[in-house]
């Protein structure tokens, strides 16, 4: 590879240079289009709300203020949402990961007589599902509606994550398990003591998938816990803020008359920044994990 590269650099044709220039321009445009709206949101979140309505704020705030943030942090509903979101993300990640990993481990046992049946039983769920209404009714019967547990219990065993982990575990040498079995260790002990520690990379991948899903979900809060404000989530609160912006955001006059320094737009910008901050700060360091996970998951089934 490096040899080819060197040869390339030495004799660059006109076409090659033109390609490089065009490619650089296209990718620069890509970066600008991706980053601009995000930077703009950050700038607005630090800008005086009324001043922002005049427009013309691009990459940097014009009238710097922290008022939007203090308004957001003073909202009880958003704080409740944050608490619930953190709680569900942590609990679900731990539970879903360990449960699904255990299933994946059981299904990698080559001589297990039911391994194929159970695999099929779960893979089917990837293609057919009961749909919104029957699922809703089942949760209602189980007492999961109007409850925190609707965020954690459904989806604990996911076929896709199971396949990703099973593929990884299949790649581990059998001899590890065999020698432990000779020492008389049971399956659970082997899983906890020997297999799980070796699976850290794939666990990191799956944990990331679960955590991001949990952190960003809002529909379950709206569908199952609409009446329960104490179980609201961060994204659902953000959604309520958003709809209040689209409904009245254009109406600058009413806001001006109310003499308030913050506007729905500026508050939403601050809430957006706070909500996405944890994930945005973390993901660059987890790149190799999700890349590995997607590659395994994509090739397999």
């Amino acid at each position: 590879m490096s040899l080819t590269k060197k040869r390339h650099c030495m004799k660059r044709s006109k076409g090659d240079i033109a390609f490089t220039i065009a490619n650089t321009l296209i990718l620069t445009a890509f970066v600008v289009i991706t980053l601009y709206p995000i930077i703009n949101t950050v700038a607005i979140s630090f800008n005086d709300g009324l001043d922002a309505l005049r427009g013309g704020i691009y990459l940097w705030p014009r009238m710097f203020t922290l008022q939007n943030y203090s308004t957001v942090l003073a909202k009880d509903s958003l704080l409740t949402g944050a608490k619930i979101t953190v709680l569900r993300t942590v609990l679900a990640t731990v539970i879903h990961l360990s449960v699904t990993a255990l299933l994946a481990y059981v299904l990698t046992q080559k001589d297990y007589i039911f391994a194929k049946h159970i695999s099929f039983f779960y893979v089917v769920t990837m293609y057919v599902s009961g749909g919104l209404i029957p699922t809703f009714l089942v949760y209602k019967e189980l007492g999961l509606t109007n409850s925190f547990w609707v965020y954690v219990i459904p989806g604990a065993v996911s076929a896709f994550n199971m396949l990703v982990m099973r593929t990884y575990m299949n790649g581990l040498p059998d001899s590890l398990q065999e020698s432990a079995q000779l020492d008389g260790a049971g399956y659970l002990t082997i899983f906890v003591r020997i297999i799980a520690p070796l699976c850290k990379p794939v666990f990191a991948t799956v944990a990331l998938f679960i955590a991001v899903y949990q952190w960003n979900s809002w529909f379950d809060a709206m569908l199952y816990n609409r009446m329960k404000d104490e179980y609201t989530t961060l994204q659902y609160e953000l959604m309520k803020l958003l709809s209040s912006v689209t409904n009245q955001g254009a109406n600058a006059q009413t806001i001006k008359n109310s003499g308030n320094q913050v506007t729905p737009t500026s508050v939403r910008a601050a809430a957006t920044v706070l909500t996405s901050l944890p994930i945005v700060c973390l993901y660059p360091f987890l790149q190799r994990y999700f890349i590995a996970g997607l590659t395994i998951g994509g090739v397999k089934e």
Binding site: F30, T34, Q235, I279
Partner: peptide, 21 residues
């Protein structure tokens, strides 16, 4: 590459907010 993954980690609530803006 790192920049390109960023929007995936934002929720649709945030992304549709950005689209509106």
């Amino acid at each position: 590459q790192t920049v390109s993954y960023l929007p995936h980690f934002l929720s649709w609530i945030i992304v549709t907010g950005i689209v509106h803006d």
